[in-house]
């Protein structure tokens, strides 16, 4: 029997591969230039652009307001960090109460359901208003009176309701056989939750969790309606003073400076998780 000569060689394949790679780079470069360039040209050539540029992108107003907006933003960051930690803990507790079928927890479970229904169904700004104005009006002893603290509590309550549903979805997505395996090892139900169920649930819901935190980071601006001078409020004051909206753009930049890195961080965590678990997402052309 004679050996047939190969129809294609390794070099042929490598050449085809290089060709394909070059072509896809070229296509993406051209389409980027066309799309972005087109959009920019569309805005810049609009009749109102010179006026909008003066009103929203004034370098001098930016320079004189940025420092104050930045110090207002420091309040956003602090509130965000504290509220986030409170939400993480509280929401997980609510989710656990709602997931566990223990008779002792029955009244708590009912309470949790009512709480989640109410706080998810009411606009956050309304809750901030109520906490900022109505709660101090009660003159309860031991209740904080600072508008910053009260509006922080309002945010924490609203977001815990949302985040508890994210956690609950995560907890319910873990197959019962995992709990079975943990119990079979002799772990108590609490240990099974702590070491086996909760860690897996949290990992699974990390992206939606972060999504809610990006929303929270922006919604801190809502506390401005009851007084605290955070970035948006400070920007508004400057905008009114200068008859110019550039300070709001400064605030927008500051919000982005936190939310974009957060998003990238989670993307990376996700990718690492995928690699460790041997999963690969391969869609689209090679």
């Amino acid at each position: 029997m004679t050996t047939l000569p190969p129809l294609t060689t390794r070099e042929d394949r490598a050449r085809a591969h290089r060709h394909r790679a070059r072509r896809s780079i070229t296509i993406s470069a051209i389409s980027t230039i066309v799309v972005i360039g087109g959009l920019v040209a569309y805005v810049l050539t609009s009749p109102g652009w010179p006026r909008v540029r003066r009103q929203f992108f004034s370098a001098s107003v930016f320079g004189s307001s940025f420092g104050s907006v930045l110090s207002g933003f420091w309040l956003d960051v602090r509130m965000f960090l504290i509220v986030e930690v409170v939400v993480l803990v509280f929401a997980l507790l609510i989710a656990l109460v709602r997931t566990m079928r223990v008779p002792v927890l029955f009244p708590l479970r009912m309470l949790a359901i009512v709480y989640v229904d109410v706080f998810r169904g009411v606009p956050t700004i309304l809750v901030v208003y109520l906490f900022g104005f109505a709660v101090p009006g009660l003159e309860l002893s031991g209740m904080p009176t600072s508008a910053t603290t009260l509006s922080g509590i309002a945010l924490a309550l609203c977001y815990s309701a949302y985040v508890s549903e994210v956690f609950r979805a995560g907890l319910e997505s873990i197959h019962p056989s995992q709990a079975g395996a943990a119990l079979a090892l002799g772990l108590t139900p609490t240990q099974a939750l702590r070491h086996v169920i909760v860690p897996q649930a949290v990992r699974r819901v990390l992206p939606p969790l972060l999504n809610d935190f990006i929303a929270l980071q922006k919604d801190v601006a809502l506390v401005s309606v009851v007084g605290p001078q955070e970035a948006f409020r400070v920007a508004q004051i400057f905008a009114a003073q200068y008859f110019n909206y550039t300070p709001l753009m400064a605030a927008a930049l500051l919000y982005l400076s936190v939310t974009i890195p957060l998003t990238r961080l989670v993307d990376r965590m996700q990718a690492r998780n995928m690699r460790e678990r041997g999963g690969l997402l391969a869609l689209g052309p090679r």
């Binding site: 079975g180 395996a181 086996v196 990992r203």
Partner: peptide, 16 residues
């Protein structure tokens, strides 16, 4: 349960 060992058909290892 601590005095018995159980091995499952689907392994049920903890993936994390």
């Amino acid at each position: 349960r601590r005095r018995l060992g159980l091995v499952f058909q689907a392994f049920n290892l903890f993936p994390h």
